[in-house]
């Protein structure tokens, strides 16, 4: 564990807390893509199949359980909570996310570290996480306006990815055999998807104005 990895995990956790806060405090999920949230739930369940087979640390197990539980809770709220579900921007959230699931799984069957069920699901979760933000970014682009908490949610999610890249650079320089091509290449792709959002986020922050994305 290095400082970048910890910062990455903490900003990831923070992003989820911000999202839960938004849903809980405003009883609204407007501006949030349910498809992206469903993809994250699939990502965590597929990746943490090792929860019962490999013990790494209490921290590791705790975080895995938190990520699985929170992502399922968010999806549950958006689908079934009587008030929250009414605010869902159904007509804006039309990205064909099943294509992302299919393409990620096909890629995992081709590119993986070992041909075992657990390793294929692990690779699948890495590929799917890389593109899972796309429905969310498309929804924001369509609605144009981004409320503060939604903007902060995506900002922290992007920060988490940026810290993970610094973590890999640090590990590459300090650990003799650190080569994780699948995770690192997918991670760079994932972070690049946030570049556009970050650009507009910083402009609005600099001008102290409301975050708006161009149509």
């Amino acid at each position: 564990m290095n400082i970048f990895r910890l910062a990455g995990d903490m900003t990831h956790l923070l992003s989820i807390l911000v999202l839960l806060l938004k849903i809980y405090a405003t009883k609204s999920c407007s501006g949030i893509s349910r498809k992206t949230q469903e993809l994250y739930a699939i990502v965590f369940v597929a990746r943490y199949l090792d929860l019962f087979t490999d013990f790494i640390s209490v921290y590791n197990t705790f975080m895995k359980v938190v990520f699985i539980a929170s992502s399922l809770a968010i999806v549950w709220c958006m689908r079934f909570h009587p008030m929250v579900r009414r605010s869902y921007d159904r007509e804006l959230d039309t990205f064909r996310h099943y294509f992302l699931v299919g393409a990620s799984f096909a890629l995992a069957l081709i590119l993986h570290e070992k041909f075992t069920v657990q390793e294929i699901f692990w690779a699948f979760s890495i590929y799917l996480e890389a593109v899972a933000i796309l429905p969310q970014l498309v929804l924001l682009q369509r609605s144009g306006n981004v409320d503060n908490l939604t903007g902060q949610y995506i900002f922290f999610l992007g920060a988490y990815r940026a810290f993970y890249i610094l973590n890999w650079i640090y590990r590459y320089l300090t650990e003799p055999h650190f080569t994780r091509w699948i995770a690192c290449v997918s991670g760079v792709v994932q972070t690049a998807l946030y570049a556009d959002f970050f650009y507009y986020y910083f402009i609005s922050w600099k001008n102290n104005s409301k975050l708006k994305l161009p149509a």
């Binding site: 490999d54 590791n60 973590n167 055999h177 080569t179 995770a183």
Partner: peptide, 10 residues
């Protein structure tokens, strides 16, 4: 490269 190391990252 060693791919056998446990997946310690989240």
């Amino acid at each position: 490269g060693d791919v056998d190391d446990a997946k310690d990252e989240l």
